[in-house]
């Protein structure tokens, strides 16, 4: 594994570097925990890595709360996401996803932007962000910024809508619905062990209910079940209008069946497709039992 590395420290320098290497082969490196592994296995010739870890700019490392929602830079580490009180209190699904990611050591360097851009079907924080219906803030080579909903960000295994002259600079998570009083939010990760595990299947949910307990908005996403993380829109819609605490056994099964329509898993070394579907059905059904006590 050998490559050239360029370490810009400002956004201006970064854009300049992108322009300079526009015609050449380059990759972005954030925490590099995934990139280094990939390049060790499949080295590339004449590759330049644009190292983002020294770009000190709120665009990449800032956290900002507004009435519309919560915006954070793509270069925030999983550790910073995990310890952020605001995220823990309002977006539990993202907190739990960050907490379940790899290990203490990896969480110190791995970034949320890297987790999204690596576009793995098993990405933990990425799955949570899909359930939260986040938006991806994309920086173009000219310095122009654009927004893409994360539900449309992934196009295949390790493929995203990002063009070569674009990169992810931030994530925007919309604030809760004004009427929302109870939020049932969580990340369920199934693997053969708890730590350092790439999930066999994962389920992220963020369900908002009004003062009477009626569900007014729901986001559900599944990981490791299809070539990309999928937003289970139909399953989420099915919940709207129902009372979370009163969802019957049949309705739970119907919800789980609808989640399953988004799953096209494969057999691989971690689990068979059959097992993945069974587990996904069961954990989808179970969120109503697990979370009844944990609402906030």
């Amino acid at each position: 594994m050998d490559f050239n590395i360029i370490t810009p420290v400002t956004v201006k320098e970064l854009l300049g570097t992108m322009k300079k290497f526009q015609k050449k082969k380059f990759r972005f490196g954030a925490g590099c925990t995934d990139l280094l592994m990939e390049l060790k296995r499949n080295p590339e010739e004449n590759l330049t890595v644009i190292n983002l870890s020294r770009v000190k700019d709120p665009l990449f490392t800032g956290i900002k709360k507004s009435a519309a929602g919560f915006r954070f830079g793509a270069m925030l580490t999983a550790h910073k996401i995990m310890v952020n009180e605001e995220i823990r209190n309002n977006f539990k699904v993202l907190h739990e996803a960050a907490e379940s990611l790899a290990s203490t050591q990896i969480r110190q360097v791995a970034t949320v932007g890297g987790n999204v851009c690596t576009a793995s079907p098993s990405g933990d924080m990425a799955c949570a962000l899909v359930a939260l219906e986040a938006d991806c803030e994309i920086l173009g080579i000219t310095g122009k910024k654009g927004m893409v909903p994360i539900t449309g960000f992934f196009t295949g295994v390790r493929k995203t809508v990002l063009k070569k002259n674009e990169l992810l600079c931030g994530i925007f998570v919309p604030a809760k619905n004004k009427k929302s009083k109870n939020i049932y939010s969580g990340f369920v990760k199934i693997g053969t062990r708890q730590s350092m595990e790439c999930s066999v299947v994962s389920l992220a949910y963020h369900i908002q209910a009004d003062a009477g307990g009626k569900i007014i908005h729901a986001g559900v996403a599944i990981g490791s079940s299809a070539p990309t993380i999928r937003f289970a829109e139909d399953a989420a819609h099915y919940l709207v209008g129902k009372k979370f605490e009163n969802i019957s056994v049949n309705e739970r099964k119907e919800f789980a069946a609808r989640v399953l329509t988004y799953a096209t898993p494969i057999d691989d070394l971690r689990a068979t497709a059959w097992y993945r579907k069974e587990v996904l059905f069961n954990i989808s059904k179970a969120i109503f039992e697990n979370d009844a006590k944990n609402s906030r």
Partner: peptide, 12 residues
């Protein structure tokens, strides 16, 4: 803070 030095770029 603890990091895995095998996945930490020396330039960083």
């Amino acid at each position: 803070v603890p990091v895995n030095s095998c996945l930490f770029l020396a330039v960083n």
